[in-house]
Nucleic acid binder design. Sequence first.
DNA 1: CTGAGTTAATACCATTGGGG
DNA 2: CCCCAATGGTATTAACTCAG
Length: 656
Amino acid sequence: MSFLLFFDHNLPFGNCRNSCVVLENDANCEILNKEKGECHEKVCAEHNYNMNVNHDEGVEEPKIGMTFDTIEELTNFYVMYGKKMGFGVFKRSSQKSLNDEETKYVTVACNRAQKSTSKSKNTLNPRLITKTNCGARVCVVLGADKKWHVSRVNLEHNHLFSPSKGRFYRCHRVVNRRVKRKLEIHQRAGVRMNKSFNTLVVQSGGYENLPFTEKDCRNYVDKVKRLKFGVGDAEAIQGYFTKKLPEKFGKHKKYKSIKYKLKKAVYDSLTSTEFDESWNIMLETYKLENNKWLKDLYVERHRWVPCFVKDMFWAGMSTTQRSESINSFFDKYLNKKTTLKKFVEQYENALRDRVEKENIEDFYSYNSWYSPITRYAMEEQMKNVLTNAKFKEFTEELTGKMYCGIGSLKSQNEYSEYEVLEDIIDNENIVNKQFSVWFRKGDSPEECDIRCICHLFEFRGILCRHALTVLINENIYLVPNKYILRRWRKYVKRRHTKVKVSYANWVLSDVGRRYDKMCNAFSEVADLASELDEKCSLVLERVSDLKSEIMGGKTSTSSPRCTPRMSAPTKNKDKIGNPAKANGKGRPAGRIKSKLQDLNDIGAEGNETSKKRSKKDKEVLRNVQMHKSSNLNSLNRAVNSPNAIVSLPTTTLDPA
DNA sequence: CTGAGTTAATACCATTGGGG
DNA sequence: CCCCAATGGTATTAACTCAG
């Protein structure tokens, strides 16, 4: 049956609301809920992967002598046949002839072909088996006319097969791009998998309309996640570490010394062995070997401990200052139970959130302002410099000065230690609290140093009321420049707005952007055309034309899988004695690998993948790869970070 | 053409942990 | 507290190369 034809002629769109149409063919029946405009798209999309094959009920039986232009055409054909009959299909084998590098023979077979050889280590825990050494297959040979000729056909299966179950075979299950995007977006937004899948089911009008299962969706999301987690972020995990420390061990008797040792191990180790040593000593001394949190952190050490990551972006960064600001930044996003993995995911959300908040704050600061309360010059100064929110905090401190008085003053050389007394009003009780402020009068007011025991500056980035009291007492009426942090200034071009969050990387990838562009364009057209039948059929007709045009363009460039090897190298092979590119054994890397490969190019040790490896080595390699991807992300950040001194490999740095 | 050998992708299973 | 979803580890399968 042809869905397009069906839509064009048989059903007037105007009165198809709520109508369910059952279409039957000999294989199975499809129920199309016509109310959903997307249904049509989805059903067609289901067949997108083999558009050039006519998927009418007339899928022929394979016969000796049939010819195909490409292997894809053959597999598509056999897949369709398999779907109709109700068995699975896979590509059995292919063989290159010795002389040239062209593929000569291909077999596509029932997926129960071959014997099942269990490699289970535990014979008491056997797994399910599907292989029955079924002989059903189609063999093709590349003829002199460059077409594939069917040389042998076996239609006999040695097992049962049922047309109605056809859609469950792996080869018949396709998660198309549209669905993938939807899943990704749901995942980002925190919609759980089963709900996410249910929306798809409802949207398409039933499970039987989906050419994939929930499992497929899970697998896909898993894959995306694994990639995402690869973009780990040392900076973030650092922040996590310092933040969680008091939470995890705050109640421990020896919290202070544990904290000291931990920080010492983390920050002061210059080499990985040094780190390992002091980490283990610390674990032993405090009997923390079984602490799961620490264990997890240790496993991930390659991605967060400075001595492991410092060569990428840690250089030149003042760690203490960073982690302080990160602490307050993450307050909102961390709770007691946040695990490391969750945290890394949350990190991106937090970052985006921060960017947006700051953009909004920037706008308000640009557009409106508070009028000063006092007549101190520093208030005017701050008004002009700080963002509104920070300015408000500042005025709070400045007006808070009225509760503060200076108790005593001890001077020694150029240092002064003030005792500032603040009246803290707590439920009508006035408590007099004492704060120590150190002050050093430099050569000029601009160069003075001031520090208060309440550490407000360190935590919030503005001087506290005690410090301000002292400054004013010292006749300094303008806040020294170094005490106005850059990140709270307005009119600052914020660097991290350009930080590449991996979210942006994948939803707004080139492919994704193109896809969105087209979808938007099309939904506009659909909007306009849905009013009238004629318009609608016009659009569908054009779409159909467009489709065949695009498909046609695709076939002319031929299938991507075979071409590179088939055409190019044979010609200049004789001229240049190029060593033939030895293909490694085993299955070549798929999509994901190639992405990682890109990242691999950053580092030096990228090309070892083909060698045989012990399991442990693989683990290490995986870490290295993760490491590298985090490297990439960190580099992006480091570029944008004000005080990073990182030398960047020129190849990876994209100026745009 | 086919079986052996290899690797990546996928499916399965037990366990954990968080939300309702 | 219970149930469901996430997770990590492991086995199986698919896709491929190569030798006979």
